[in-house]
């Protein structure tokens, strides 16, 4: 029972820390010149995502494999609860894959044009937050995107206007 309580306490604390960290990032407005993120070419990870549904207690959870290839784009291979592969090649315009590609290519001009940037770095861990500018296409659907990582991207948190929040966690990442 004690062990269980410790686990619950640890989960609550870490959730609180993450939430605080996420809110805190908007205290750090930044410009492209001050942002440093490791440049990735090809990365493989496991992902798990949780989507909240507005006005509902239900969650939508899924997980699978994530691949980022600098030249080809972003691939989400969902293995649970349905098997499906969603790929966004570099010439397609999906907002999230576009952001991932822009971050990986250090295309801060693109990010700066479309988003207000917020950045914070503690040791090797960094957090980049993007809030769509009113002129951006993303403004009508997205509130903010918070990307955090170290050597690799660890988490993406997407806050939308109508469709709740999505958190994508990346684990077991390896570059090749």
């Amino acid at each position: 029972m004690k062990k269980f309580l410790w686990i619950i306490t640890a989960i609550l604390l870490s959730s609180y820390t993450i939430t605080m960290a996420q809110d805190g990032i908007f205290q750090h407005p930044s410009s492209p010149n001050n942002i440093y993120i490791p440049k990735y070419k090809n990365v493989n990870c496991k992902f798990s995502q949780t989507k909240t549904i507005p006005n509902s207690q239900a969650y939508i959870k899924s997980s699978g494999n994530f691949k980022f290839q600098n030249t080809n784009g972003v691939i989400f291979e969902t293995t649970y609860p349905v098997k499906t592969t969603t790929s966004y090649t570099t010439d397609q315009n999906n907002r999230i894959s576009g952001i991932i590609t822009a971050v990986s290519n250090r295309d801060y001009s693109y990010l700066n044009k479309n988003f207000d940037l917020f950045y914070n770095k503690v040791n090797s861990d960094w957090t980049l937050a993007l809030r769509p500018k009113t002129s951006s296409k993303a403004h009508s659907v997205m509130k903010s995107v918070i990307i955090s990582g170290g050597d690799f991207i660890k988490q993406i948190n997407i806050n939308t206007i109508n469709s709740g929040d999505t958190t994508i966690n990346f684990t077991q990442c390896s570059a090749y």
Binding site: N55, S56, S62, T78, P81, T84, R95, V141, S163
Partner: peptide, 20 residues
């Protein structure tokens, strides 16, 4: 319904309208 599930579980899809 199968295609709706794919859209629903797509990590980077956006819901333009609430699910209800």
């Amino acid at each position: 319904t199968s295609e709706a599930f794919t859209r629903l579980y797509n990590p980077v899809s956006f819901m333009l309208l609430p699910l209800n």
